[in-house]
Each structure stands twice: as C-alpha cells, then as structure tokens.
Design a protein around this nucleic acid. Sequence first.
DNA 1: GTGAAAGCGCTAACAG
DNA 2: CTGTTAGCGCTTTCAC
Lengths: 362, 362
Amino acid sequence: MSRTPSRSSPAVVSGASSQPQPQPQRRSPRAADGPSIAGVAEQAGVSVATVSRVLNGHENVRPATRDRVLAAIDASGYRVNELARNLRTAESRLLLTMVPDFGNPFYAEIVRGIDSVARRHGYFMLLCDTGADPGRERSYFDMLRRRRADGAICLDPATIQQALGEASQALPWVACCEFDPQMGVPYVGIDNYRAAGDAVRHLLTRGHRRIGLINSDIDYLYARQRQQGYLDALSDAGIAPDPRWRMNLNSLDYEAGASAAAGLMLQPDAPSAIFAVSDTLAIGVIHGLRSVGKRVPDDVAVAGFDDISLAAQIDPPLTTIAQPMRELGETAARLLLQRLANPQANVPGVLLPHRLVIRGSA
Amino acid sequence: MSRTPSRSSPAVVSGASSQPQPQPQRRSPRAADGPSIAGVAEQAGVSVATVSRVLNGHENVRPATRDRVLAAIDASGYRVNELARNLRTAESRLLLTMVPDFGNPFYAEIVRGIDSVARRHGYFMLLCDTGADPGRERSYFDMLRRRRADGAICLDPATIQQALGEASQALPWVACCEFDPQMGVPYVGIDNYRAAGDAVRHLLTRGHRRIGLINSDIDYLYARQRQQGYLDALSDAGIAPDPRWRMNLNSLDYEAGASAAAGLMLQPDAPSAIFAVSDTLAIGVIHGLRSVGKRVPDDVAVAGFDDISLAAQIDPPLTTIAQPMRELGETAARLLLQRLANPQANVPGVLLPHRLVIRGSA
DNA sequence: GTGAAAGCGCTAACAG
DNA sequence: CTGTTAGCGCTTTCAC
C-alpha cells in the first residue's frame, strides 16, 4: 500500500528547486517578453495607431497595409498586452461570481450558466468562494472598487448582502438565488415560498401528517421563505406544526443532514416525512435515516430541493423541487451585462419557475 | 404547481429595462469614478509619489505626512486602480486554473486548495472550465500570453496539454493530476499505476476473479496508468484479463457509470466486482447495478477512486482510493508560485501518497 | 523625506 | 487612409 499522507513532506520525485519558500518577485517591466505594439509598428513600417486599428478590426485601413501589419504580428509572435488595453479602456472584462460554497453541486450548474453567457459576451468569470464570510465577501466587493473586475454576481446569504450596505448600492452587481427585493439590486431567483409549499403539499398528499423540516442557516432568505412555505402549507391543512420537527443547520454538507435526521428520529413522536431544503442535505438525511434503521420511503419519506444531477442516482431516487439552475445563472449574467451596458437603467427582478419532481423517496 | 420552465420568457416581476439586448458600451475613461492618486495628492498637499509610497507601505515617509495622506484617502474614499498598477508592475496577480469539468466534486476540493494558497500569496484565482476542449484550453493559455494572468494550473487531459506543444513550454504553468513527466513542465499528482493496483488487489483479496474496469477517456494519462495497474495486478494474480470486462467512457457523469454497469452485467460471464476509476462513476455504477437487480456488494462488489465526500454517504458506502485532493491543489499552487518567483529554476515534479479506504461496497 | 518626471503599452481624438 | 500625440493611473528612479 502507500505511505500515510503527510502534509509536510511530499515526495520529491525529480528535479529540485533552489527556492523552497515561494517568494514572488516582481516581473521586470522591461522583461524580454516579446514585442510591444511599437515593435510591430516599426517592423511593418507603420505607426502604432495603424497597428492598433488592425488589432481592433477598424474599417479604415487599406488592405495592403493591413496585410503588412498582420504579417509583422505573425512574424514577431506579438500578443496585445491586455493590462495596457484595460487601463486605457477602463474595463477589465472580468466578472466576479461569489458563492458561499463551490463544493455544492447546486452552484456548479448555476456557475456554468453564468460562465457561458459571460464568455459569449467577451467576459471572463472569476469564481470566488466566500465561505459565506462577510469579510471575504467585502474583500471581493473591493475588487470592484479597485477596478479588478467590471461587475459581480452574488449568491451569498441575503443577510451578508445587506451587511454590505448602501456603500455597495452603486456598484455594478446583481443578486442570484438570494436577494432582498427591497434592496434595489437586480436579482433573479425562484418563488421559494411556493416551492416549499409544493413540496410539503406533496408529502401531505401522500398521507403524512408529521412532517419534519431540515433547514439551513436562517441567514439565508431562502431558508426563511421555505420555512414559511412549510409552516403555512401545514397550517392550511389543519396541522399545528410542532417546533420539535424543525432543525436549522449551518451547513449543507451531507454529514450535517445525516446527523440531523438521526437526531430527529430520537424523538418519541418522530416525523414520518422530512422535507430538506437542499438535495445535499436530503441525501445526507437518507443516509442518516438508514444508519438508525429507518427505511426510505417506507418508514420515513424524504423530499429535497434543487434537483442536482445526483438526486436521480441515489437509492431511493430523490423526490425534490427542481430549480432551473442553468437558467438562473444565465439570467443573472444577462442582468449584470444589462446593468453594465446601461448603468442608470433600472434592471428588473426576475423570478423563474420551479417544478416538483416526484421520484422514489417520497 | 408552476409553469413549465421556458428559456425564452423569464417572468419579469418588477422594473423594466430600456436595453433588451445587452450591448456593453465602453465605460468612459473620464467617468466620475472617484478620485485618482492625483486627487488624493492634491488634497493632502503632497506629490503623487508620496501617496504611492504610503499606499505601498514604504519606509521613508514622515509619520506626519503619512497621516495626512491617510486622512485624504479616507476622506475621498479613494481606491487604487489596480489596472494601472498592474500595467506598471507588469503583473496581473491572477492565476488560472483549468479543469475539464468543474461539476465534478473531485475538482472542487483541489480548487479549494489552490485558491487558499493563491490568496495567501496575494493572488486571485480564475477558474476555467475547459470541458476538455483543446480550443478552449488554447484560448485560456492565450490569457497568459496577453498578460491577463500571471500563471496557470492545468488539470486537463495530458493529451491536450501535449497538443499545446512547445509553444507553451516557456509559459508559466504547472500540471496537476494529469501530467507527462517528459514534458518538462512542473507537476503534482499521485502514482496512479500503484493506486489502481492497490484497488484491484483488494478486490482479489475479497475472492473476486472476474473484475471489471470502468475507465474514463483514454486521453487521460491517469486512465492509461490505472488501466495498466489493473491489468498487471490481474496478471500477477495469474488471471488473464478479459477485454470484455473493460469499458472506456467519455464522461465521468453518474449516468455514464450507471449504463456502463448495466451493460457489463448483460454478458454471460459478467464480472463479480467492478473497479471504476472515479467515485462519480462508481456511484453511477451502484445505481446501474441496482437497476438491473444486482445487490452491492453481495452480487457485485464496487470500488471507486478519489474519495470525494459523497463516497461515505451513499448506500453502501464506497470502498475507494483516496487522493489527497486539498494537498494536490495546494502543492500545485506552490509549484506555480515558485516558478513565478524564479522562472529559470527547474521546479520539481511531485507525487503525493494515496490511500485505500475500505467501506461497504467492496 | 519628498517631488518631478519618465514611462508601462495601448487607444482615441485630431490632423493631414 | 494614416500618423502624431495625449493621456489612462500608477510606480519608480533620480535629484534636491
């Protein structure tokens, strides 16, 4: 077998470094880094302005000249220095996406959506894992102020967004999934209240009366909205929700769901169904249920939320609320691009439809 | 319930945009964007050089002057324009990380490792999903040439890395997980050959003789190495590997694993154990096995590779080879930083230890 | 200690 | 059509 992993002593297999501690030193401004636009101009026998024109595809260049420039570019292996271009045009063509945890598959698909429209519009996307930490969040917002990025999409808890306060109001950003309509920031999300109600009503339809809720941190607006949807759906059915059926977790990890479910089952009058506000949680719940000898859905039914691709793969397949993840990301990116194009226009808030997906778990 | 999702018509809930098609226009260079360093200098009654000095924490500034500058900065809400700074210092402080599919949880943890050391060294990390597409790969490498980024970490298939050819040899990048030692590019990874052998030998120990291999695209060096490890382990045990037990998939999705496993079971003399080269595949395999009525591990044992956090959660818990994902990422980032700090130093290739984790599936 | 001035490489008027 | 020129905002010698 292999040695036990050891942080301190990776096995050096070949070569050697003369610099054990990485201590980046500034790259010399005058490094032999290939030619600048001036070099190309000289080589082609034209002015830098002309080179710039062909670089940017302007019309007013005689074909012969253009060809000469192109040849010079080719011969010299020239590449524009975007740093310089960006300074001149006052834009970085970089978009920030801030997520609380990019290990969660839910975000992966959203981020793909953002990335695809960003790229289609000539922007690159920088993915930032904030860990739902206000400090990190703030430091990323600072990138906007420092012109490191042109705009941002924030998926962090609404509470954190609010903490940024009015100071950030004017910055070019939009909220995705988590948003406070009052804040005046463009947003895209779903109707969490109704979606949660749909899930609970499905459980009700299946004959369940004791329905537990495994919720995430209440810092998330979606957590509050889904809880309300759950509460009201129960009340509407003439059921008085027992507070002991509800749990709030500060993590969406599988493990968190597993131990929460196991805990819930310890109660004398334990729920016969559990609604978890995230598929990752729900998958953990199923695991936790099994660990205390409960069968799903026979002993306890489980419903999740998001419909990540994994949901259909586990045993039993997960009944869940599908969010249009890809579309959420795409819309967020489009809203941001709109705002960038037209800073003073008021950009809409958008709600996308969700869908109940019934599988084996409930 | 809700309407069916529709790509073309998101429900606009509030506000309205005057610009339906995002058509970014250049931000005016002279925008009212807060003061520049010159403004601060004027306000503090000093030169821009002095402001720059306090900004960068240089020693030779009289405390009184420093305070005056700091006050001016504070009062004006000044933020350095990193675009300008970057042009001047000829570095972007941006690192690229290229992954073939960032939906795979395996990469998430590696990327976290990269991100943490990058940030600790004052760099931001741009995550790029190449989809294992050479064209996208190339375009990201171009960011290095255009100075959009200072360095890159590539997790894409070795075949693609090689396709980049010598042209990229001089660029500041390192390979992670996928690497060709011959290429002269710094790398970090594990001993895939031995790791695969360890997995297969474990299956052998459990008494299995007919062991299937569900492999990924052979473009990946790891796929070839793990296959060889599998083959040799079998041969060493005096078993002639049946080619019908082997499958190559061009995806690591759960679905791919599921249908591959189902297919494998159709054979007359189907394997009694399956080694999948990725946990995501293995999870799909278990699902696929179940769908054709096979129990795991009683009818068919399953071993995976990676040890993503999900592996312990599914039923049955997955026996797998653990890769030190976090450490792989951290090491890759450190190697890159080393290379940046000292371009001509030859940076080492590093192999990190793996570990067999025995759970319920095999 | 502090200031003046020279660029980093590029784009965009403005002339011609 | 093409060239000249003036910066974008910052860092960094080089004087004083």
